[in-house]
Amino acid sequence: MAVNSKYRRILPEIRGLVDFSSNDYLGLARSDIFSGSPDGAHGSTGSRLLTGNSEEAMHTEAYLADHWSQEGVLIFPSGYMANLGLLSAVPGRHDTILYDSLSHACIKDGVRLSLANGFSFRHNDLNHLESRLKNASGQAYVVVESVYSMDGDQAPLKEIQLLCQQFEARLIIDEAHATGLAGIHGGGISEADNIEFFARVNTFGKAVGLHGASVSGSAWLKDFLVNNSRPFIYTTAPPPHLFVQIRKAFDFLKSHPELAVRLYNNISYFHQKSGAILNERVMPGPHAVQAVLIPGEEPVRNAAATVQAAGYDVRPILPPTVQEGTERLRICLHSYNTKEQMDGLLTILKTLL
């Protein structure tokens, strides 16, 4: 069967370009801080409940629990699986999950796999969330991202926390794009703003420079997931050296806070320059993800090709990832991008727009 070209995705083969596309916000994925495998082990040999558990896994989960002052932390092989495993397992048949309409696909898929009733609320719309909470049945769960991956904007976590407290709802926060960047210990915006939550997902594939993710919360939550989360139970565990590297990364981030400072200085510089050049086309999020709106599949593809030809790795974002009419170039800023690189990128964009 032919693939509809409108939604066809092709694996990229782009090399040697200035990076404005990856999630390696602080450059750790290309650094030399990771090396070696404990006991020469390169694989875990099985699921955590069979042969795949290790001292390194338990040590790292205890390390993160202490690091973030949480009762329990459970590590999954990816952020996708963490959200899938959490949302499909915990909410019950008569419960309600309310999730932001711009939530990542893994959150929406987790809701679909759950036995609970699932409803979206308009993006960052507190009034709509409140109306949903008033009509929720059973235990209500509210799921948001601290930083949204396509618009780069931030959830009003303090106000959402107050609504959850008012309606006795359980707050779940995905910190994918703030892990390692916000909070004294890299826990994300919820740590920086002292937000109370039922569960928090922290991913290690972005600013932390690795892969995998964790779910933090109560000791009960960790035990429940170990026994009921199918994506955790039936998946081969990450290799022991990944757990070692996770601890290394957070130790490194703790001793190098200047990396995040450099990133946010770059964000500020990009905002200052892009506002004058791109006007209403740019969606100036306060975090690493920046979006330049170029509606239409062909125009945004052509724009990306032109930018890449000039030496800058920027990718087009198309439906169904975003709604038709909101196609955009997604620009990821990093601590290692220079002012000259940002100026060069903006100069190319100015000629296009």
Score class of each variant (00 low, 15 high):
84 L>D: 12
283 M>P: 00
144 V>Y: 04
136 A>D: 01
66 D>S: 13
122 R>G: 12
15 R>C: 03
36 G>Y: 08
282 V>G: 08
193 D>S: 12
264 Y>K: 14
128 H>A: 07
133 L>N: 00
104 H>Q: 15
112 R>T: 14
38 P>N: 10
95 D>A: 09
83 N>S: 11
328 R>E: 05
316 P>T: 01
81 M>W: 01
300 V>C: 10
84 L>E: 02
59 H>F: 02
319 P>L: 14
318 L>Y: 00
135 N>W: 02
303 A>H: 10
48 R>H: 07
147 V>G: 02
346 L>R: 06
271 H>N: 14
286 P>V: 09
42 H>D: 13
108 K>S: 09
61 E>V: 00
66 D>R: 12
214 S>T: 05
76 F>K: 09
66 D>T: 14
229 S>R: 00
260 A>M: 02
251 D>E: 15
334 H>M: 05
235 T>H: 15
95 D>Y: 11
99 Y>H: 08
146 S>H: 06
260 A>F: 00
258 E>V: 01
282 V>W: 11
248 K>Q: 15
124 N>D: 15
100 D>I: 08
71 E>V: 03
46 G>K: 05
145 E>W: 00
85 G>P: 03
231 P>N: 10
282 V>R: 04
73 V>Q: 05
277 I>D: 12
167 F>A: 09
353 L>M: 11
138 G>W: 03
320 P>R: 01
97 I>V: 15
236 T>F: 03
267 I>K: 07
136 A>F: 06
307 V>I: 12
350 K>V: 00
280 E>Y: 05
182 A>E: 12
180 G>T: 04
337 N>Q: 15
58 M>W: 04
59 H>W: 02
244 V>A: 07
134 K>P: 01
207 A>F: 00
230 R>C: 00
105 A>Q: 13
184 I>E: 10
115 L>A: 15
85 G>L: 02
273 K>D: 05
190 S>Y: 05
37 S>F: 10
137 S>E: 15
199 A>I: 01
91 P>T: 01
247 R>M: 14
73 V>L: 05
179 T>Q: 04
57 A>G: 06
4 N>W: 00
100 D>Q: 09
15 R>I: 07
101 S>Y: 04
34 F>H: 08
244 V>L: 12
297 E>M: 09
240 P>C: 10
